[in-house]
Design a protein around this nucleic acid. Structure first.
Lengths: 345, 345
DNA sequence: TCGCGTTAGTGACGCGTGTTACCTCACGCG
DNA sequence: CGCGTGAGGTAACACGCGTCACTAACGCGA
């Protein structure tokens, strides 16, 4: 195994520029208040460029600097596969948002309510955390927060004193339900994406409720059911609603994956979609367009979400003020299932 | 912001055990050939335990040790969303496989044929790489390989001198096609998952061919078409096959996502599934069971794949011999679409 | 000439670890 | 008694960087 050549160090740069190592450090880190002449500065920069100099992250960290490491904490149980469909996209966005400043992403799957998060911060060396997929009852968060440790929640956790970046779940749900109303539907059922422990489930339900209230429609609890992120639970939910006997002509399902189960249940019960029952989902998973009929849904900008989360975390780390909540807009994608009839693509 | 208490260092351990720092290092790293009495060893270990001592990774790295960092290189274009459905699971497995030895996973999305991989190795400080989703024409790989840099490919790249961990794509495809034959189908079409640049596309096609040859059935090129990892391309593929006019009574689609498009095309053409045309897919995505009819498919053990890849990389890093290819078994999941009729779950 | 402030830099230390070379005993043996 | 020898350990350096305290040169007014 041929030894790879040694990387140039700041001493090499200093030698080449004919200055001290200290000066190199000052120039490269743009140290405020440092007295460096323009000529010297340029010599240093040129030398660094010529040598292809890159500061050694470990050495920098050891000397009291940042780690250049940010952890993406995946706080999910294996069943939440639906939300993970976008993981790759989100990571791409994150990588772009953080990579510019030389940050790298380490990924740490930690089951919900596993106390390992404190440990992560203490023992691993991190500059910040992006926490994905939190729940209302998430523990171990407060401790970190009042340490002042930089955290950004991807997803929402209202009330927690942590900046969060999320899609505007409530507005998205709202737009979907309003769309169903606009199609002339009057009795609109609701199937949640997950248990109400999950913030994202509550927020989407809020959107549904607001839309009903706005349009002066009756909120009927017998038309509401929970699910558990997967299609099977959607099937159970719609079966339950059907069994209650309350008539309805539309269902807003707060997750495309769950909607698969809902549609299956409706078809099995002899209801036609969208003629008898219009459907709108949420997420715009890649397969949504290939359901029969194609699913009207709310698009979630996964890439942008990652990008925004990354940038926000950078701001927090740098001590800049950040908004408590960043809400990215969703986009209603109208397809056949809501009866608006654009047909298959 | 209250300063977090300093972590204990090896000097603290040494002081508490009444020995020198060197001795602590020898004991903790089990230095071969070091002369340490049993009593001293135990004192050191006890002190380390009491203090909750953890070696500082950056310092260790700086002193010439390993980085304890492994990069998961996602070498995919955004369109390959299908395969990414399993990313979270794979990462969980990886994390478990590597975490035991204190390794952490940094994630680096790098588009195919982007030369950035060399840079990654030179400039970032890594102990190894797990390369996910390679293609036949992947560049920048050879350079790394004959550096002797530890790499494990997750996915297959036959011919490349790199250990790989993958599901047995060929055997999986083979089992699916044999199953279709066992259902009495005689003219079986094939829709690939992706372009033949991708190793995984070729391997699955191989399985199809072998199964046909074994059962003495005719391989007919007019019954074969490529796709591009998404449902839309599946639709195009089946439309093309239909347009050729060659009769067929089954289709093996090398990806569940693509199969969605294929089924859509068949239904649009008035063919009934599975009565007129039986279908089998590959991957067992969570929604496969909720297609109408439920999709017969080949299950991919995503978690185990990550686990195996992680372990293999550890072996490579440690200089142990590893098999050139590790192939994990798949499992045929029989549902309604292949005409074997177990019905919806 | 002296005193003083400003500009443009530098020398040396510390971060926590691995490691090499060395040191000090006690002991056995000729 | 002299001397090797091995067991059990230690002092000190290197890794690459950030940073504090300090200085050399220079200008300028008195």
């Amino acid at each position: 195994m041929p030894k790879r050549p040694r990387m140039p160090t700041s001493a090499d740069v200093a030698a080449r520029a004919g200055v001290s190592r200290t000066t190199v450090s000052f120039v490269l880190n743009r140290r405020p208040g440092a007295q460096i002449s323009q000529a010297t500065r340029e010599r240093v920069l040129a030398a660094a460029r010529d040598l292809g100099y890159r500061p050694h992250p470990a050495a920098r960290h050891l000397a009291g600097g940042p780690t250049s490491l940010v952890s993406l904490v995946l706080r999910r149980t294996p069943d939440q596969v639906g939300g993970d469909a976008f993981l790759a996209e989100t990571v791409r966005g994150l990588s772009l948002g953080l990579g510019a400043d030389g940050y790298r992403i380490v990924i740490d799957p930690i089951a919900p309510n596993d106390g390992a998060m404190r440990d992560l911060v203490r023992t691993q060396h991190l500059d910040g955390i992006i926490l994905s997929g939190p729940r209302f009852d998430d523990v171990g968060l407060e401790g970190l927060v009042d340490d002042g440790f930089p955290i950004v929640v991807q997803g929402s956790l209202p009330g927690a004193p942590v900046p969060s970046v999320d899609v505007d779940n409530t507005a998205g749900a709202h737009s979907a339900v309003r769309h169903l109303v606009a199609q002339g539907r009057r009795r609109i059922a609701f199937v949640a994406n997950g248990p109400m422990d999950y913030t994202v489930a509550r927020l989407r339900r809020d959107g549904y409720r607001i839309a009903l209230a706005e349009t002066g429609m009756l909120a009927d609890d017998t038309l509401v059911a929970d699910a558990a992120f997967d299609a099977a639970s959607g099937r159970r939910a719609i079966d339950e609603i059907l069994s209650r006997g309350t008539p309805f002509d539309a269902v807003f399902v707060a997750s495309d994956v769950v909607a698969f189960g809902v549609i299956g249940g409706l078809v099995a019960a002899g209801r036609r979609v969208p003629d008898d029952v219009a459907i709108a989902g949420f997420d715009d998973i890649p397969l949504a367009a290939y359901l029969d009929p194609p699913l009207t849904t709310v698009r979630v900008p996964a890439f942008d979400l990652g990008l925004a989360a990354g940038r926000t975390l950078l701001d927090v780390i740098a001590g800049r003020r950040v908004p408590a909540r960043t809400l990215l807009p969703t986009e209603l994608i109208v397809r056949g299932s809501s009866g608006a009839g654009t047909g298959p693509p």
